[in-house]
Amino acid sequence: MVQLIEGVLSQGQRESLEIEDFIFHIIDPDADADEDKRVIFLDEVNLHAKQREFFLARLKEIAEGTQYKFLEDAVHLKEPCVEIVSRSDRFIELSRHITQDFSGRHKGQMSPGVFVIATVKYLVAAGNWQKLVFLVKMDKRPSFSYSYKNENGRLVAAMSEIENALSEAKSAIQKSALIDVSNVFAWDVLAFDQIKKPLLGDYYKGFLGVIERQEDSYLTRSAHITVKKWARKLTKEQMPENEDAFGYSGRAFNYLVDHDAFDTDEFINAVVRDDDPERKAILKNQLREELASAGISGQRFRPQPGSISTKDKKQVYKTEEGVIITFEGDKAAVGLTTENIGNNRKRVIIETGNLIIK
């Protein structure tokens, strides 16, 4: 049996992404009062090299999100995606069907923009190319262009509005989905909703026909345990002076307590602290790979710190003299510091407002 990949696309898989089929259709809520006519269907999009790079960069950026599985009785999106991957001759026809379904499910006012449908190929492993389907809703963002000329020795600028402009800003991407119908990954869909993050809006979730693959509590525990296991494998030479495994796992726990939404980059930045930029970059990359292998990297969820067991929360130091120090979270946050004082000795300092005799 083939082992399914738990995480999102690895860095190598992202770098191998190549656009095969590509189209977008224009969503214009003001085009017609009839909902069925507010999509302007295109027959072809000519992408020049720079434009292809632009869209490929957007696709690589959004190759992450919360993991979902298709509902067994929801085939309205799954079946067209299966067809798109296997029948490139039906790509335009099916892309129209998908876009119309997306637009038709939105009952309120929808922002004007484009709905992108693309198939991309990527290397799962050496010699093993597979395909994915990308769906992206990008809002239209009017911008301005300018020109200037010399008028009697004075440089005078004139500005004009570019109405149908697509922004390179990540915030212009309102919704995205990466769909695997080849059973390479343990998930079927990675999805992101800018408005409802880290969740999905009801209509968008209905359009995708999915359910969360894993619960927030599971993802919270997995994120914390992954950091603990990774940190314990680090040697003294790999860490800053006076740092230890508890420092990393404690900061991971505090992040999960203090944040309402999990973001991979923010989480890694909170966990890895180092004044040496080269060592910091190495540690961040290592942790990212560990989180990817555990299926956490790129996921968006609401941390549930209460789901972490008391045993996993606890950090315990024991000195050779038999003194036991127990705490939760970041040791700096609880007023505890450790420092090397030479001759294989350590100094432990605890600052507190009160010392209670138990």
Rank of each mutant, 00 (worst) to 15 (best):
Y204P: 04
A252D: 09
G322H: 10
E20G: 01
N354H: 07
R288G: 02
K50V: 06
A63L: 10
A191G: 01
Y218K: 13
N354E: 10
R300G: 05
I26W: 08
V181C: 06
E64V: 13
N152I: 05
N164D: 06
T337A: 10
V124L: 07
T352I: 08
V227C: 01
R141D: 10
P112R: 09
R232P: 02
M138V: 13
P277I: 06
N242A: 14
I325W: 02
Q214S: 13
T337D: 03
F102N: 07
V257N: 04
K228L: 13
S16L: 07
A177N: 06
D28G: 11
E237R: 12
S147P: 00
V334P: 04
E64R: 12
Q51F: 07
V316K: 12
D330F: 04
R251E: 05
D330H: 00
I19G: 05
Q214Y: 13
M110P: 11
I324A: 11
E278V: 15
F185D: 00
V181Y: 04
V2H: 14
D263L: 06
F102Y: 14
F144C: 04
K236W: 06
H97D: 04
N344R: 13
S143G: 07
D244T: 08
E161D: 00
G201W: 03
Q304E: 15
A125M: 09
A165D: 08
Y204G: 14
V189C: 00
V2S: 12
A57E: 00
K121Y: 06
K69Q: 15
K313I: 02
S103F: 10
S88D: 05
Y203V: 02
S95H: 03
F134P: 01
K358C: 05
Q304H: 14
S88E: 12
E243A: 15
I324K: 11
I98T: 07
D188C: 03
I179L: 04
L47Y: 06
G12H: 15
G342E: 01
D188A: 00
E237Y: 02
S145A: 04
Y248I: 09
H106M: 10
Q51Y: 04
S293Q: 14
V120C: 10
V114T: 09
R96A: 03
S145V: 12
V323C: 01
E241R: 15
K280R: 15
K50D: 00
G353V: 07
E266M: 03
K60P: 03
K170W: 03
V156D: 01
F91W: 14
K149Q: 10
C81D: 08
T326V: 08
E237M: 07
A118W: 04
A74S: 05
K331F: 05
R90N: 09
D202Q: 10
Y203C: 02
V334H: 02
P198A: 03
D139Q: 13
L4W: 08
D73N: 12
R232E: 13
L71M: 14
G7D: 05
V120Q: 02
Q286V: 08
P240Q: 09
D34H: 06
D180I: 11
S249K: 06
L77D: 01
D36M: 08
K311Y: 12
V39M: 09
T319E: 15
F207W: 15
L287F: 06
H76Y: 01
R345H: 09
Q130V: 09
